[in-house]
Simulated assay, not measured.
Amino acid sequence: MALGYKTRRRLSLLILLVGLPLYIVVAVKAVSLFERPSIWVELLVYVALGVVWALPFKFVFKGIGQADPDAPENGTRK
């Protein structure tokens, strides 16, 4: 399933504005279920969770920072 540039751009914005804060809340709640580990273990867990959440969305974020490949060359925006 190939998503268009505008669709990927909107989806990435939705993921960053809604999905990421929700994931942060879930990660904090999940870690708080256990007894608090040392700061280094806790940091390692949060870094690992920070990487894991982005892996399924790699295809959405790829190329979003680039110019729209479907846009006309004359520089006008739609």
Rank of each mutant, 00 (worst) to 15 (best):
P37A: 10
K62D: 14
K62R: 15
G50S: 08
A54R: 10
V41Q: 14
R36Q: 14
I39A: 15
R10Q: 10
Y23P: 00
D70K: 05
G19N: 03
S12L: 00
L22K: 07
I15K: 01
K6N: 11
W53T: 09
S12K: 00
I64P: 03
P37R: 11
V18M: 07
Y46W: 08
A67L: 10
G63A: 03
P72M: 03
T76V: 09
N74T: 02
P37F: 11
S12E: 02
G50Q: 05
S38W: 13
Q66W: 03
G19F: 02
S32V: 04
L17G: 12
R10E: 13
R77C: 02
V41T: 15
R9V: 07
V28C: 09
A30Q: 07
L43Q: 04
L44E: 08
V60R: 00
F61W: 12
F59M: 14
E42W: 02
L16N: 11
V47R: 06
L11G: 01
R10L: 11
N74I: 01
G19M: 01
L44K: 14
K62C: 06
D70G: 06
A30N: 07
S38D: 15
K78D: 10
L22F: 10
P72K: 07
F34R: 10
L14P: 00
V45E: 06
T7F: 04
L55G: 00
S12D: 00
L11S: 02
E35Y: 09
L55M: 11
P37V: 04
I24D: 08
I39S: 13
E73R: 09
S32Y: 08
I24Q: 10
R10N: 15
W53C: 09
L14I: 08
G4N: 05
F59V: 12
V45Y: 14
F57T: 04
V41F: 09
V47H: 01
F57Q: 02
R77Q: 14
F57P: 01
V60D: 01
K58E: 13
V45Q: 10
S38R: 13
V45M: 11
P69L: 02
A27R: 03
L3V: 03
L16Y: 03
Y23I: 07
R9N: 09
L11V: 05
V52W: 05
V52F: 08
R77D: 06
G65H: 04
L49Y: 02
I64Q: 12
E42D: 08
G63D: 06
P21K: 11
K29Q: 09
K29M: 15
E35C: 04
E42G: 11
V45A: 12
F34L: 15
V31N: 09
I24Y: 09
R36G: 05
R9I: 00
V51C: 10
A54H: 06
L22I: 13
A71P: 02
S38M: 07
L3H: 07
L3W: 09
L16G: 02
P56T: 04
L49N: 00
V25W: 06
G50H: 03
V41C: 08
R77K: 14
I15C: 04
G4K: 06
M1Y: 14
G75L: 00
V45I: 15
I39F: 15
D68W: 05
L16Q: 12
V41D: 09
V28W: 11
V18F: 11
L17Y: 03
A30V: 12
P21W: 02
G50A: 03
F34N: 13
